[in-house]
């Protein structure tokens, strides 16, 4: 063993450097949406969104039968201690990375229906938040689907047409082993793995698309920077009470762009940005239907597009 010690030290150093490099350039959603901060048993109790996921899992394991909410209360703390004992972890009630990981033991990823490597072709991704499935399409044809978790009702996954703008590795915390950032203009969102695999198939995230780590690792190798990602599903309450002009950004613009396309116009990517192309389309719509001049989306434009008062 003594002879091997320098080798182990070098290996540890390389690993540490690798991890440091990976974490040095982390996209914003990794910092803001989910957290690897340990959950502490405090009095008064901490309230955090991930407590709900914790309580759901403890309840599945038969260790907790209290209210399913975001408050890390005494009963939940006791249940965590109980769980930790069973897994030879120190029963502190502190939900750290080791505890989260242990909570995921036994969660089975569904059997794969497609095991061959993807064929050559243009890759696009479609995420359906109604069915919680992520589908990889090759040259427009569905090749393989993966189960995912989506955003909670208060933090919905952004519907629209995005692109992968960054890719990276993680160490297996809340973001699992891989992440891919999307170019959503009004927030930081992405597709990533998880250390809460029991949440896959539910609406549990802060808006990101969560996948099993094995699945996200497979997906990571298939996609590249620029791969289009189309997300469909429920939308938040949208505000069409005011005119929209060039420069506006938000989920309202995504719907505006989608409806323009449905009427035969070509707004390009439904990316939630009221840019030159969207403005030209609105101008065309105004002129064609004779309801105004210019590229401003007014109440009449919303009426024509069928989005006024609907969202």
């Amino acid at each position: 063993m003594r002879g091997k010690r320098p080798l182990l030290l070098i290996l540890a150093l390389v690993l540490a450097l690798g991890c440091a490099a990976a974490s040095a350039k982390r996209p914003a959603f990794l910092e803001t949406h989910e957290t690897d901060e340990p959950l502490m048993p405090e009095d008064p109790p901490v309230t955090r969104p991930d407590v709900l996921e914790l309580k759901i899992r403890l309840s599945e394991l038969g260790l907790y039968d209290g209210p399913l909410d975001e408050v890390y209360d005494k009963r939940a703390q006791e249940a965590v201690k109980e769980f930790q004992k069973g897994f030879w972890l120190e029963p502190t009630g502190v939900v750290d990375l080791a505890t989260w990981r242990a909570l995921g033991y036994g969660v089975k990823r569904p059997a794969q229906t497609v095991t061959e490597p993807p064929p050559e072709g243009y890759v696009t991704i479609e995420v359906d938040m109604d069915t919680l499935q992520l589908t990889v399409l090759i040259d427009g044809k569905a090749w393989k689907s993966y189960p995912v978790a989506g955003g909670r009702w208060t933090t919905l996954t952004p519907v629209g047409e995005w692109k992968i703008v960054e890719k990276g590795y993680e160490r297996g915390g809340a973001f699992g082993s891989r992440w891919m950032a999307l170019d959503v203009p009004w927030g930081s969102y992405g597709i990533h793995g998880t250390n809460r695999p029991w949440s896959i198939g539910s609406y549990a995230s802060a808006g990101c698309v969560r996948m099993f780590n094995e699945d996200v690792e497979e997906l990571f190798e298939i996609v590249s920077i620029g791969t289009p990602v189309r997300i469909r599903g429920p939308r938040p309450a949208l505000d069409f009470s005011k005119p929209l002009v060039r420069g506006a950004v938000g989920p309202e613009i995504v719907l505006l762009q989608e409806q323009l396309r449905a009427l035969g116009f070509d707004p390009g990517q439904c990316d939630g940005q009221f840019g030159g192309r969207t403005e030209a389309n609105v101008r065309e719509l105004n002129a064609l239907f004779g309801v105004g001049l210019g590229g401003v989306a007014t109440m009449d434009v919303y009426t024509l597009l069928g989005i006024r008062g609907r969202y």
Binding site: V291, T298, M299, D300, Y302, T303, L304, R308
Partner: peptide, 9 residues
């Protein structure tokens, strides 16, 4: 009036 189509609706 502004936005007659919306008013018609």
């Amino acid at each position: 009036v502004e936005d007659p189509l919306a008013l018609w609706q």
